[in-house]
Simulated assay, not measured.
Amino acid sequence: MDSALDEVEYLTRSEHRIEVIDALADGPHSRSDLRAITGASSSTIGRMLREFETQGWVVRDGHQHQATPAGRFIAEEVTTLLTRVETERTLRDVAQWLPTEKLGITIEAFAEAIITVSDDEDPYRPVERYDELIEDAKTMRAFGTATLKSANAGSLFRNVRAGMETEIIYPPPIVEAVLDWSPQAAKKRSC
């Protein structure tokens, strides 16, 4: 292969190649192990292993194959790249509204985010989802103002009083507005 881009293209053009290099990075495997992991044919596994050996990513020891340090490095980096691309694809429609720069975090902080959107049939779906999430939560960390709407402030206050460890980052005027909605329910301790 003539360039790094050629090698990346070779590796990522096949899901089986990524599965094999990733499996070998975790430890030694036989060809039959790799067939079982990937569902690929024996000849496909053989071609892959020969190419990986040529690249210096895999070594053979008897019937076992294992990743070299270079192979483990490649496996880690390609799976990291795929995870990042999957994260970006998941968040593509909402990424513009994530306050990553303001909070000093990267989009990776939202890698496991579940996005709940309203629609014409269920305009309150996000509020209902919020209530579902905090119903049995033991801890809550939040930022932004969406979680403290009057419609669900009661759920939040009830759970905090029940012992839910809570950390919320809001400007003081927002906190004051929430407390004004239900001063008895909030029982303000500190802001």
Rank of each mutant, 00 (worst) to 15 (best):
T147A: 15
D136E: 00
M140D: 01
R47E: 09
V59P: 12
I45D: 04
A23P: 10
E77D: 14
M1R: 14
G154D: 14
A137E: 10
T54F: 04
M1F: 01
P171H: 06
T83Q: 10
V117N: 05
K149H: 08
I45H: 03
Q96D: 08
T106A: 06
L98T: 03
E15S: 08
E112F: 01
E112Q: 09
Q96M: 03
R17D: 00
T90K: 11
R125E: 13
M48K: 07
G104A: 00
E19Y: 15
W181T: 15
G39Y: 11
S43K: 07
E101L: 01
T54C: 03
P69Y: 06
G71A: 10
G154I: 01
R13Y: 04
E112N: 03
G163E: 01
R35E: 13
D61R: 07
V59K: 04
T166P: 04
H63T: 12
A162Q: 07
A177V: 11
A109K: 07
T79W: 05
S3A: 13
S42Q: 14
R13V: 08
L91I: 00
L11K: 12
A67C: 11
W181F: 14
M1A: 13
S182Q: 10
V178P: 01
P99V: 11
K149E: 10
A70M: 10
E101P: 07
A36E: 15
L49T: 02
M1L: 12
P99W: 11
E51W: 12
V94G: 02
S30G: 06
A70I: 15
D122Y: 08
I18A: 14
D2R: 12
V85D: 07
V78Q: 10
F52M: 10
F157A: 11
R50I: 06
T44L: 09
I105N: 00
S30F: 08
T106L: 05
A177I: 08
M140K: 02
L103T: 02
R13S: 13
M1V: 09
R47P: 00
R158N: 01
T80Q: 12
S14I: 12
W181Q: 01
I174G: 01
I114T: 09
L156G: 05
R72L: 10
Q64T: 15
I105Y: 05
T44K: 01
S3D: 08
W97G: 10
D61A: 09
D6S: 09
V178W: 04
C191Q: 15
F157Y: 07
A177E: 02
Y170H: 02
R141M: 09
T79F: 04
V20R: 08
A4R: 14
V178H: 06
V94C: 08
L49G: 12
T54H: 11
R72F: 13
